[in-house]
């Protein structure tokens, strides 16, 4: 169980710089970049969950 928790924490740590840096690239002003962070975080995490679910399902039912 500790192992799974560690993976979730490490995923969260990896998510933070990805979301922040891409928001910085998209917005030259800091206020706009910070305002956009929650939406970007949700899209990123949601996409990762969808991709992971697809991979797990493929692993179970394909081939």
């Amino acid at each position: 169980m500790i192992g799974y928790l560690a993976y979730v924490v490490l995923f969260a740590i990896g998510t933070l710089p990805i979301v922040v840096v891409t928001s910085f690239l998209s917005h030259a002003d800091d206020r706009g970049a910070f305002r956009d962070l929650p939406r970007r975080a949700m899209v990123f995490v949601g996409s990762c969950i969808a991709l992971a679910a697809a991979l797990v399902l493929m692993g179970l039912y394909v081939g």
Partner: peptide, 19 residues
């Protein structure tokens, strides 16, 4: 995770440099 984080730090810095 360690290898991925190290590489990510470099690749994200490339994105930062575009900004």
């Amino acid at each position: 995770f360690g290898l991925t984080f190290g590489a990510m730090a470099g690749l994200l810095n490339a994105v930062v440099l575009m900004d």
